[in-house]
Design a protein around this nucleic acid. Structure first.
Length: 609
RNA sequence: GCGCCCGUAGCUCAGCCGGAUAGAGCGCAGAGCUUCUAACUCUGUGGCCACAGGUUCGAGUCCUGUCGGGCGCACCA
């Protein structure tokens, strides 16, 4: 239905042709909703732009335009309001049209690869990890809703220092999993213990442990400890699953390395690789980053160490070449079943197309990774500039979400200043349960959906580039700017639908009987495609959060609306036949709109609560 | 030092490619359920949009600078 705005734009552009305008004049014709206290439903400020070129005043131009424009279907009239040109929609036709339409996006024929989560496999998820995972998950849903093919990847850094330290800790303390603590929590506590017992920032202490840790890294690189890492990953995936987050593929760093992808990648820009023969970088190989980023103390970025091993970013470059389909080489197999779809993993002994699935070959790549990885992501982008015509870099986007503070403090896994994701999820659900009526069937399930909704919404409603502070009472609030408010409006609307059906109301809807209140509601509903497009453009789900609340607020306002004497004038059950059915259709459409908005945020909307 | 992000109401934040009187929630003061769910709604309160210049018919929004806060600048990952 946002087609209407498009139709208006076209009509307005058509009207502009009747003016003698300079060839080089670039006009931005935009159609916007009028402020609520202004006449009309949509308006344009285009007269301001014309005023200068025509040496006339915008008020006169707006008047003139109002007469010249030929109105599209669905618009009843145009009127100049000062310098603005405003349009009035044909309420009956508009409402009927919105009520009977559902947003469906045509296939875009493009594949988007979204990488998110990518939590080091050495400890449990903490609240900070939730943020990027939720943003990535919501974005994946939004791209799907917009007609893109989406592949969500979770990168497992199984050869890194952190994974090694945790595995070393197990050995050092001769620890054996008690099977009662969740495995990732158990492992994480050993990691914290290790850092408590050894100050690994201290050079001497670090050096004394180094041979043993290096030995672990060696084993990790050989894949000897893969089952151990898999146990952590599985435990972490349980956390993701409880948040309703699913992936398509786990990409293991060790697989990227073993498949020879890094060598292939390096070979593709071998001519750009520098090998200093003297100075501190003698023996190493790398690239000059200065064309890509200013202000580095050392613009030379080592990609291959003097000892021939690869730094992390080099593996990441190779991974991204693979994501874009510059080469094959990885093999896959099924990892587990998720609720919605199977999860695959890279695996040395896997197949190229397990169960007929194909991976990678993305047209666009979006990495939801916190802002501290900004430089590493620039290195990846630089790597992408170095191959082909350099255009791959354009389709790589680092969605840099800011970090999460905990009650004003910087979190630290090593120091143990964290709150685990699992703990927060459990608390959110129990707080919701306390507010959920005992009479409700499936009370616990509903409370769980509400608690999770509140939690997710708290993370998603802030724009990603803003640092947020996790505070229990804000994050788990169930009133105010929260998901439960939207869920509540939805449940309320569904209840009206149920009441309507059970009473057997089935008169023909009388669309001419509906008024401005219903029109406003449907105008809000009609915005959905624009909001979705905005979220994709800005790579952020947060406008959808505002929109879900806007829908809920609009509906709640409608529901509670009173006439001048203070009596409800929107009670649906008591409305005259005809208007009643039209209103039922409007309410059902609003319920669907809320459900749809929450759905792309990864939040469920219960039918009652 | 250099780079990235942030600075809007007492607090937490929206503000879409510049457009009509800057909006929510929380808080505070009040009002509304014998009628479809009060996790709601309505009214009031509260702003030098960090500061200073610039561009523009028009700037919270764009540009430059300054000041505050966060993060990053390894042959770690």
């Amino acid at each position: 239905m946002s087609d209407l705005k498009l139709l208006l734009k076209t009509a307005l552009e058509g009207a502009l042709h009747s003016y003698m305008l300079p060839q080089d004049l670039k006009l931005e014709v935009s159609i916007q909703e009028t402020p609520s206290d202004k006449p009309g439903d949509y308006g344009s400020a285009v007269a301001f732009q014309l005023a200068k070129a025509l040496r006339s005043n915008p008020v006169q131009i707006a008047k003139d335009l109002a007469e010249k424009i030929s109105l599209p279907v669905g618009i009843s009239r145009a009127e100049a309001v000062g310098p603005y040109l405003n349009f009035f929609v044909d309420a009956a036709a508009f409402v009927q049209d919105v009520v009977s339409s559902r947003h469906t996006a045509p296939p875009q024929g493009q594949k988007v690869i979204i990488e998110h989560s990518s939590v080091n496999p050495n400890k449990e998820w903490h609240v900070g990890h939730i943020r990027g995972a939720l943003i990535g998950d919501a974005l994946a849903r939004m791209y799907r809703a917009s007609g893109y093919s989406v592949e969500v990847q979770n990168y497992i850094d199984d050869t890194g220092r952190q994974a090694a330290e945790s595995q070393f800790a197990v050995r050092h303390y001769s620890a054996i999993w008690d099977k009662t603590t969740k495995f990732d929590h158990w492992l994480g506590s050993l990691y914290v213990q290790l850092h408590k017992d050894f100050d690994l920032k201290n050079k001497e202490i670090k050096a004394s442990l180094e041979p043993q840790i290096a030995a672990v890294i060696h084993q990790l690189e050989n894949g000897e400890l893969r089952p151990e890492i898999e146990r952590v990953v599985k435990a972490q995936l349980e956390t993701a699953a409880s948040l309703g987050i699913e992936y398509d593929l786990l990409t293991w760093e060790s697989d990227v390395v073993h498949a020879g992808l890094v060598e292939q990648a390096l070979a593709m820009f071998a001519d750009r690789l520098e090998s200093p023969t003297e100075g501190k970088y003698a023996g190493a190989k790398g690239v000059d980053l200065s064309p890509f980023v200013a202000g580095l103390e050392e613009p030379f970025k080592v990609l291959v160490r003097g000892n021939g091993t690869f730094v992390y970013e080099t593996k990441d470059i190779a991974y991204h070449y693979w994501k874009f389909g510059l080469f094959e080489g990885l093999k896959f197999q099924k990892f587990s079943d998720q609720l919605e779809k199977p999860l695959y993993t890279t695996a040395p002994s896997g197949e190229l197309h397990p169960d007929g699935h194909s991976f990678a070959h993305g047209d666009r790549v979006i990495n939801v990774i916190d802002s501290r990885q900004g430089l590493a992501q620039i290195v990846v982008k630089a790597g992408l500039f170095l191959v082909g015509d350099g255009s791959y870099a354009k389709y790589h986007h680092h969605l840099a979400n800011e970090t999460v503070l905990l009650e004003g403090q910087t979190m630290s896994g090593r120091k143990g200043i964290t709150v685990s994701a699992d703990q927060v999820i459990a608390e959110a659900q129990s707080r919701a349960l306390a507010l959920t009526p005992e009479s409700l069937e499936a009370r616990e399930a509903v409370a769980s959906v509400i608690g999770l909704g509140a939690l997710k919404f708290a993370f998603l409603k802030a724009s990603p580039e803003r640092q947020i502070d996790f505070r229990w009472d804000n994050a788990l609030a169930l009133q105010g700017d929260t998901a439960p408010v939207a869920q509540y409006a939805h449940a309320r609307a569904r209840k009206i639908g149920r009441d309507g059906s059970s009473r057997g109301f089935d008169a023909a809807p009388d669309w001419d009987a509906i008024g401005g209140l219903e029109l406003d509601l449907m105008k809000t509903v009609a915005k959905y495609p624009d909001v979705l497009a905005l979220c994709l453009r800005d790579h952020s789900p947060h406008p959808m959060c505002s929109y879900a609340l806007e829908l809920a607020g609009a509906f709640n306002g409608y529901y509670n609306h009173k006439d001048a004497s203070g009596k409800s004038d929107t009670n649906i059950m008591h409305s005259p036949a005809g208007l009643r059915e039209a209103r039922l259709a409007v309410v059902a459409r609003v319920a669907y709109a809320i459900e749809e908005a929450l759905e792309v945020l990864g939040i469920d909307a219960p039918d009652e609560m």
